[in-house]
Design a protein around this nucleic acid. Structure first.
Lengths: 344, 344
DNA sequence: GTGAAAGCGCTAACAG
DNA sequence: CTGTTAGCGCTTTCAC
């Protein structure tokens, strides 16, 4: 008995067909909700299915239909709430449409990303979500020759090589700069994320630098740090040596680090030092002082990627780009726009 | 030309075989690293593969081998860093062994979980990670009849129906209680997570209640709240009405809420009120006062699940249970163990 | 070592 | 409406 179980074979469509006294084609029709099956026959087939505990074999189905009903996502990490939330939404939206999600993590390594893209293609995903617009030539070539439908999220560029569903990182940072300058801050420093192979981080720096230049200013200090509270906190020390009156952070995780470093250094926020983040993680609003940051539509990006990818797949079209909005949320780590330029 | 591309067909093993002047069997052997292929032939095949840009078709492979080289994970949410981190580690470890990861989110809904388990089976994953020991009869039946290898993580029970790789939630909470009592706290309340369909949350409550009873005490108040800072913060108000001198929180997210609520109420932590969390999220150490909490081996669980699942798959054995340790991390939201029992 | 042939479980024309 | 017949692309005996 336990031995019998060991070699137990899953019921197959053929078994169901025999049990119901029909052809496998009919079973397939019932499974796929085809309307051209008599109710009586349909009932018989459904009875056989549940009697046998039959479970369809998706690989076989994929092989026959050349469709996997699966989406893929290659992301830098799940250890940042902003990506976790995006993937969460992507999965929910995909599932609502009957698609599965296979994910892999690149750890911000573009060469690894290319390998992962290839594996996604092998797995036969029908659509793929990537993050950002920085990708290796190898990855691009793979995507191009296989014509795999894909969307690059978390970024938006006029001239992007692939469809983008995201936002303009540079523009968002420009808004931050305007706010800071309007508040009277002049000695502005930036603690950025690693810009190598990361167009989002790079755009944020460039966005800040260019807009500052427009105000006739430049960064009094610019340092890059990994996305970790601890490392950002450590990097804040040398950064603060330039005696900035405001620090623009590459994202909220970095802002947390600077926040704690400033507190430790006995600096008053926002009077001695202003701090801005990016992402609007839940906790930015709860810390005191609450962090001024930029709201990023992470869940919406995930949801939209799923929907647009699936629409494109099912209508046999190409996904299109979508530019989403960010919003500056002014809280307590920057002064309210009172100390405007030119006040006595 | 653009029209030609539209109907472009992926190179198949047959194409490679023809190009290399060998049989598909030989191509297959090369692909799978079989040793019984002459070097000269192998080279010819490899040349053809890269010349044609051939990419193997995993569905076809899975159909033929009855193996998918994919793992599945069904988790409650990705919007909690502790699960995100576990999945992140699971993916990394799986990938190292050549396995893909397909994930789905149950939103703490056990009926949905059962549906997702079924989809995982359809997809043909070779192994599955679930969270906790609470599952519907339907899910259990599916797992049992298909004999799908699986591990239930985040929990550990002597009599678990499935292999567990996790920790004893009740024991961890008992340790929290001991610490609190040794510190002199007596009016202890608990803000728990939703216990319905969640054995981890239930075990944490039971672990606290039983250990308190051992000390001749009982909770002065017990309320459940969703795992959200905002809702926990709101729930803390009625909870504090019982005038507890310590609040045990179901996890760190809830602890954040209580932390902010206490601060808002003007209570001094830990003198007016002690707070304990669970999970040891990064920020618990950085807030001030830093939160006393329980370290949970999330990444390790993910990694071990992948390894043990894959070992079991490849050696054709069943995965076994592993009990991991948690550790109480005493920080600043509880008094140091000075006010021990019986002091004047 | 290598090729031929038979499927893996399912869907998709095509008849009837 | 339903059955028959071919495959989808790959692996796997079994001969040679």
């Amino acid at each position: 008995m336990s031995d019998g179980k060991r070699f137990l074979k899953q019921a197959t469509q053929t078994d169901v067909a025999q049990a119901a006294g029909v052809s496998t084609a009919t079973v397939s029709r019932v499974l796929n909700g085809s309307l051209l099956v008599r109710d009586e026959v349909r009932a018989r087939v459904e009875a056989a299915i549940s009697a046998l505990g039959y479970i369809p074999h998706e690989s076989a189905r994929s092989l026959a239909t050349r469709r996997s009903r699966a989406l893929g996502a290659v992301i830098p990490t799940l250890n940042n709430a902003i990506f976790a939330s995006g993937v969460n939404a992507l999965e929910q939206a995909a599932r609502e449409r009957g698609y599965s999600l296979v994910i892999s993590i690149s750890n911000y390594d573009l060469d690894l990303e290319a390998v992962l893209v290839r594996q996604m293609i092998e797995r036969g995903v029908d659509g793929l979500m990537l993050v950002g617009n920085d990708h290796t030539a190898a990855a691009r070539a793979l995507l191009a020759t296989t014509r795999l439908r894909h969307i690059c999220a978390w970024a938006w560029a006029e001239d992007a090589a692939s469809p983008n569903i995201g936002f303009d990182n540079a523009a968002a940072m420009a808004e931050v700069v305007d706010h800071l300058v309007a508040d009277g801050y002049r000695r502005i420093a930036m603690l950025a994320g690693p810009t190598a192979g990361n167009d989002r981080a790079r755009d944020r720096v460039q966005g800040a630098v260019k807009r500052l230049a427009g105000h006739g200013l430049s960064l009094v200090n610019l340092i890059e740090t990994p996305y970790s509270i601890r490392e950002a906190r450590a990097a804040a020390i040398p950064l603060l040596a330039a005696r900035p009156d405001a620090v623009i952070c590459g994202n909220d995780v970095i802002a947390f680090g600077v926040h704690f470093a400033a507190r430790e250094a006995g600096l008053a926020i926002p009077d001695d030092i202003a701090i801005t983040g990016f992402d609007d993680l839940t906790l930015t609003a709860e810390l005191s002082p609450a962090i001024t940051t930029v709201t990023v539509p992470a869940a919406e990006m995930g949801r939209l990627c799923a929907q647009h990818l699936i629409d494109a797949i099912e209508t046999d079209t190409d996904p299109v780009s979508l530019r989403l909005d960010t919003r500056l949320v002014i809280r307590q780590t920057t002064r309210a726009a009172s100390g405007a330029i030119g006040l006595p």
